[in-house]
């Protein structure tokens, strides 16, 4: 039972991460591999605030969103001026820098030792101490994230995002400030990733930089692609599949040292298979291809 709840909580965290990346990558067509960095910012902000000031959970979450959003703007404004492949490289660079900072600023982040002993969250004086309580908390934030994304995507604002994804020139000629839209979307996505980070930090009660690597970014992107970019429920399906699948390996009886490697192979294999035979994922409406291929 405990194990099942653990898996459900993890799925919840990855739903928040992948749904928010989907807004950036799936709906707006900006292939970012910096999502784990914003996830990490959220996690570290929450951990440091909880450890140093013993601040309440909701304050941590607001601070994490604001800081991560600001960082999103800081990264987004210069890197969104360049397009396609170059943008991917820019986000990759930021991801690497973010990891190095977390890993090397030992006095502040604890470096590779991480930050242990993050307290359980307290909301309006109520301490969330059971796993079930935590699942409810994650569920609430999942629902909130999905609702926000749903509102954005179904609105005229969301229609502009689709136009930008499909043809920036058309969007500009129709009077849309493409650069501003991109930065806004990047900031929203970064803020939401931070929410997932806060959840993770308080849940596991320990964080270290290895949870926020490039591999993690690519994992989140895989969820989006396999689930279906540009659809509301695609990443939810993707998160369930990609979190549950490696867990099944345990029941096959693979020793854990082998299972970890097999996991990577499965992710890689799945990604290649989907790119070749089902580029739109399970539920997606958008396939990542070169712009030339689509035109």
């Amino acid at each position: 039972m405990e194990y099942l709840l653990h898996i459900l909580i993890l799925i919840g965290i990855y739903v928040i991460l992948s749904v928010s990346l989907n807004l950036i990558a799936g709906h707006t067509g900006l292939l970012s591999i910096a999502h784990a960095a914003f996830y990490g910012v959220g996690g570290y902000v929450a951990a440091l605030m909880a450890l140093k000031f013993n601040s309440p959970f909701l304050v941590n979450i607001v601070c994490a969103i604001v800081l991560s959003g600001l960082l999103g703007a800081l990264v987004g404004i210069p890197s969104l001026r360049i397009r396609d492949d170059y943008f991917v490289i820019a986000t990759f660079a930021f991801q690497v820098i973010a990891f190095s900072v977390l890993n090397n600023w030992v006095s502040f982040t604890g470096g590779p030792m991480g930050l242990p002993g993050i307290p359980q969250p307290t909301i309006f004086g109520l301490q969330v101490s059971s796993q079930l309580g935590f699942l409810v908390l994650v569920g609430v934030f999942c629902a909130l994230t999905l609702w926000v994304i749903h509102r954005i995507v179904r609105s005229p604002f969301g229609r502009v995002l689709k136009a930008i994804r499909e043809d920036e020139v058309f969007a500009q000629a129709a009077g849309k400030n493409v650069a501003a839209y991109k930065v806004l979307v990047f900031v929203i996505g970064a803020g939401m990733a931070a929410v997932a980070g806060v959840m993770y930090a308080h849940y596991i009660s320990f964080i270290d930089p290895t949870s926020f690597t490039v591999m993690e970014s690519i994992f989140i992107l895989s969820i989006v692609i396999i689930g279906g970019a540009g659809s509301l429920w695609g990443p939810v399906v993707g998160a369930v599949v990609l979190v549950v699948l490696p867990e099944l390996l345990r029941f096959v009886g693979l020793p854990s040292s082998v299972a970890a490697n097999v996991r990577q192979i499965i992710y890689g294999g799945l990604l290649v298979a989907f790119m070749m035979w089902r580029p739109r994922g399970f539920l997606g409406e958008y396939a990542f291809q070169g712009k030339e291929a689509r035109e």
């Binding site: 136009a163 020139v169 058309f170 000629a173």
Partner: peptide, 24 residues
């Protein structure tokens, strides 16, 4: 240049210049 995946109506709707719903 049209947004080929969107409906003809949506293409026209995108072209209106003063839609307050396009602001976040």
């Amino acid at each position: 240049r049209l947004i080929r995946q969107l409906s003809a109506l949506d293409n026209a709707l995108l072209s209106f210049r003063d839609q307050p719903g396009e602001r976040l």
